[in-house]
Amino acid sequence: MAEIAALREAELSEADLLAREREIAARHMGHFPWGSVVWCFANLACWLALWPLVIFGPVPLWLGFVIATLNIMLCYLPSHEAQHDIIARPGTKWRWLNELVGHVSTIPLNLSYGVAKLTHMEHHKHANHPDKDPDYSNHAPSAWAAIWKSFLNRQPGATAGFNRYGELMQEMKTPQSERALVIGIVYQIGFYGFLIGMAWSGFALEAALLWWLPQHIGLTYIQFYLSWAPHHPFKRQGRYHDTRAWRSKLGNILTMGMQYHVVHHLYPRIPLMRTPLAYWEMRSVLEARGVRIDGL
């Protein structure tokens, strides 16, 4: 059935296909992403609450570690909605909420909003370009290699991954990048200062298991599912070829909606939670466009 629909779409002209694609996308844009806003604050509140709950005893450290790891895995996507102005466009009534979500959501990940936004916009402009895509360094030949690469990229001497983000801020030389760099440095000082302060106050294990180790695990998970999996094998560029639709054994929730990443790259202002629906409505158009669809 889907193949027949794709063939029908293939008979349409370029202009018709684009018009159809845009008409579907327009139906899904402009919706206030309540889910992502609640997700941001609930997730952050949960992670912050873990500190007194673990330190004063009601929650055991091992359970705190598990919850903190989940919190950090989950903290990036609400900020991602804000990076694309999905919560509120500049100059609108709820803009402050967009910026607030952007700033606070990724605190547990030790990633500042400005750096995240500027590098992510570069990723969208140059997806899969070996020199210009800041996330290109996540490419790897296999899933295990991608996980290992994620660890290698964050070693002190590495010039890729998050280390590359700092270099990019310096190269961009715009007022926004300079401000983002300063805030990014403040984040780093705050993060390591907090870890060291806690450690010398007798809470080294708590700091390690509620922030340091969960941050490493969460970052690996995020880089794997938000970058490696949807862009693998990082070879092609262009609007319909720099990412893919794919089916994961873990399903949609555990892959954080990234099976439908192609919809996000085509129309970044569609809220995350609407990308599955937009994909299924758009699927035959995407097939006719030659989008890589792996089992979805």
């Binding site: 002190p156 440095i185 000082i189 390591y192 870890l195 450690a199 010398w200 080294a204 294990l205």
Partner: peptide, 28 residues
């Protein structure tokens, strides 16, 4: 000072965080 801290980041982390962490593990 900030540049110096970043330049010697691994040493700062090793002595600042790893040392008390390992001490807590040994004692714990």
């Amino acid at each position: 000072l900030i540049e110096l801290i970043f330049k010697f980041g691994p040493l700062v982390f090793g002595f600042g965080f790893m040392v008390p962490l390992i001490h807590e593990l040994i004692v714990g």
